[in-house]
Design a binder for these strands. Structure first.
Length: 251
DNA sequence: AACCAGGACGTGA
DNA sequence: TCACGTCATGGT
């Protein structure tokens, strides 16, 4: 078994199933915080159960860009209160109201626009799943957001790479510190079975691990992964990058 | 009171 | 391609 898969199992054993993506818990028809009691759904991969939840995940993926989840969550709750977490109602929402609702997630000018841009794309899909290229063509949707949407909203086995993934696994010696998104993604794709459940858990587990060991004031060199699995990127092989450039990568 | 959060885009070299 | 700068609120 490849170390990247061993590490996955270790994280799973340590932290347990994460139950991503966080969804609204509805108590008495009122929106409550995601992740509270019924919000997360550890071990249940049947979500999203409907288009409402599917769209909620997409909106959340945009709102949480470079932002703590609690802030994106508050923005979602505001939208939910306005009954605007649905494509049609969101498009009829005045720009001012949208920005106000999205405010706690930060970058409210940009994120209001991003959500609108995506919603337009979402409507044009008429229920079918978008391709990665279609998502990337939307203004405001980059690599990570596109892959998060594909993986969590559409259950397509695409490995999500975030800043934590790069930090942790470059520290461990599995990828270059300056590796690009696609490069990191390809390494995981190559060694981790293309199982949507595993991909969902792995990404969530990486975030959890980072929260526990990579926060400020914490020493990531003391984390259990670093002690166990750290390896020097000694074996260097030459590979062709996506742009056709030859570059050395750790193998 | 800095520093950072489950990024993405625009710009000038 | 590369290296910055910009966007913005809220928690620690």
């Amino acid at each position: 078994m490849h170390p990247l898969l061993i590490i996955y199992h270790e994280l799973l054993q340590r932290y347990g199933k994460q139950g991503w993506w966080p969804l609204f818990a509805c108590v008495g028809g009122n929106p409550t915080k995601t992740g509270s009691l019924q919000g997360y759904h550890p071990g249940d991969y049947s979500y999203p159960k409907n288009e409402r939840q599917q769209f909620e995940i997409c909106a959340g993926a945009i709102l949480t860009q470079n932002t703590a989840w609690v802030n994106a969550e508050q923005a979602l709750i505001n939208l939910r209160t306005l009954r605007a977490v649905t494509p049609k109602s969101l498009m009829t929402l005045p720009d001012q109201a949208l920005k106000k609702a999205v405010m706690p997630a930060g970058y409210f000018n940009q994120k209001a626009k991003k959500i609108r841009e995506f919603t337009q794309c979402y409507l044009s899909l008429q229920g079918r799943a978008p391709t990665r290229e279609e998502l990337l063509a939307v203004w405001g949707i980059g690599n990570e957001t596109a892959d998060s949407i594909l993986l969590y909203a559409y259950k397509i086995p695409v490995f999500v790479v975030d800043a934590y993934t790069k930090r942790i696994f470059s520290n461990l010696g599995f990828v270059d510190a300056d590796a690009e998104y696609d490069e990191v993604q390809e390494i995981f794709t190559r060694h981790v079975p293309a199982d949507m459940k595993i991909y969902q858990e792995y990404h969530a587990l990486i975030v959890e691990h980072a929260k526990r060991h990579y926060g400020r004031g914490l020493d990531w060199k003391q984390c259990p992964l670093y002690r166990k699995y750290r390896r020097a990127p000694e074996k260097i092989s030459l590979r062709w990058g996506s742009a056709g450039s030859l570059r050395a990568v750790a193998w």
